Simulated scan of single mutants.
Amino acid sequence: MSAHVQKPGWFTINVFNRVVAWITRRGLSVWGSRVLAVRGRKSGEWRTTPVNLLTVDGEQYLLAPRGHVQWTHNMRAAGGGELRLGKKVDTFTAVEVADDDKVPLLRAYLKRWKAEVGVFFAGVGPDSPDEELRRIAPDHPVFRITVES
């Protein structure tokens, strides 16, 4: 597993993420945003962060543009969590996607959110060749999620 992590800066932590989370908690999705809640792997406490929910061919995915960050480690340990939009809470299970299967998901994610997160993908964009997307796949965890009914 790659150790790739791009830690967010002060503005992202203290302004951008807080604004997006605040709007999302009030029921307004910003380009597919949700508040992800997952249990901490050591503390067992709920941890939250805004994420972009990707849908491809009817399946839903969470992709970590900044790499192997805390929520990805927690997701591996917990095997699922909650996606929140306003008062709606969807409980889900998660399965990590293998690197070889990430190319179309990375491409779809970058097509939708490149303006927001493109800087985290080492110059690779939605129109890059498959080989370039394959090269960065280990740096970006992807989880297929299944919402429980």
Score class of each variant (00 low, 15 high):
1 M>P: 05
2 S>E: 03
5 V>Y: 11
6 Q>D: 04
6 Q>R: 15
9 G>Q: 10
10 W>K: 10
10 W>T: 14
12 T>G: 09
14 N>D: 02
15 V>N: 10
16 F>S: 15
21 A>D: 12
21 A>H: 02
21 A>W: 10
21 A>K: 11
22 W>V: 05
23 I>T: 15
24 T>L: 08
27 G>I: 04
27 G>L: 01
29 S>L: 05
29 S>I: 09
30 V>T: 02
30 V>W: 03
33 S>V: 08
33 S>R: 10
35 V>F: 06
36 L>E: 12
38 V>W: 02
38 V>R: 03
39 R>G: 04
41 R>C: 13
45 E>S: 13
47 R>I: 12
47 R>D: 11
48 T>F: 09
48 T>K: 10
50 P>K: 12
50 P>H: 08
50 P>Q: 11
53 L>H: 10
53 L>D: 02
54 L>I: 00
56 V>H: 11
56 V>A: 10
56 V>G: 04
57 D>W: 04
58 G>N: 11
58 G>F: 08
58 G>R: 12
59 E>T: 09
60 Q>R: 12
60 Q>H: 14
61 Y>F: 15
62 L>P: 05
64 A>H: 00
65 P>L: 06
66 R>E: 02
67 G>Y: 02
67 G>E: 01
67 G>R: 07
68 H>G: 04
69 V>I: 10
69 V>E: 06
69 V>M: 07
70 Q>M: 15
71 W>F: 07
72 T>L: 01
74 N>S: 05
74 N>W: 11
75 M>V: 11
76 R>D: 15
80 G>L: 14
80 G>V: 06
80 G>M: 08
81 G>R: 03
81 G>Q: 06
82 E>S: 14
82 E>D: 14
83 L>F: 04
83 L>K: 01
83 L>G: 07
85 L>E: 09
86 G>L: 10
86 G>C: 02
88 K>D: 06
90 D>I: 04
90 D>F: 05
91 T>R: 15
93 T>K: 12
93 T>A: 08
97 V>E: 04
97 V>W: 08
97 V>T: 02
97 V>L: 03
98 A>T: 01
98 A>H: 11
98 A>V: 11
99 D>T: 09
99 D>E: 13
101 D>W: 00
101 D>N: 05
102 K>Y: 07
104 P>T: 12
104 P>A: 07
104 P>D: 02
105 L>G: 00
106 L>D: 01
107 R>G: 03
108 A>K: 05
109 Y>W: 00
111 K>R: 14
114 K>Y: 13
118 G>E: 08
119 V>N: 03
120 F>R: 08
121 F>H: 11
121 F>N: 06
123 G>Y: 03
127 D>T: 08
127 D>M: 11
127 D>G: 12
128 S>L: 06
128 S>K: 14
129 P>F: 04
129 P>Y: 01
129 P>T: 06
130 D>R: 00
130 D>K: 00
131 E>V: 15
134 R>M: 08
136 I>H: 02
137 A>I: 11
139 D>P: 00
139 D>N: 14
141 P>C: 05
143 F>S: 01
144 R>N: 01
144 R>F: 00
144 R>D: 00
144 R>M: 05
146 T>F: 02
147 V>S: 12
148 E>G: 05
